[in-house]
């Protein structure tokens, strides 16, 4: 798993429907260094499916999901 110190940014997408969390992720990931990690915080039902699918389509690493105080944190590592 990922060390918390590797998480360089948290995208707060609470209350925003898909595909907004994926759009925010696609916008943010190229701005961080390869190997670092972004958490997408979302309470949308489709994020659970579409964030891993985006990673698969874009060759990025989907690390996993962890429950957050509100919503779920979807962790993505920039692989390329």
């Amino acid at each position: 798993m990922t060390d918390e110190r590797d998480v360089v940014r948290v995208l707060d997408c609470l209350g925003r429907p898909c595909p907004v969390p994926v759009i925010e992720l696609a916008r943010a990931l190229p701005t961080v260094r390869v190997g670092t990690v972004i958490d997408v915080l979302s309470d949308d039902a489709a994020a659970r499916l579409d964030i891993p699918a985006w990673c698969r389509l874009k060759g990025q690493e989907y690390v996993g999901a962890t429950p957050a105080p509100a919503g779920t944190a979807y962790r993505v590592r920039r692989a390329s």
């Binding site: 429907p17 898909c18 595909p19 039902a45 499916l49």
Partner: peptide, 23 residues
């Protein structure tokens, strides 16, 4: 997709496949 007129949940079929559900 989710958020269409009939449901807020994305299709259980797409979900079971691990497929993209947006658009």
């Amino acid at each position: 997709s989710s958020c269409t007129a009939s449901t807020l949940e994305p299709s259980h079929v797409l979900a079971a496949m691990g497929a993209l559900t947006s658009g």
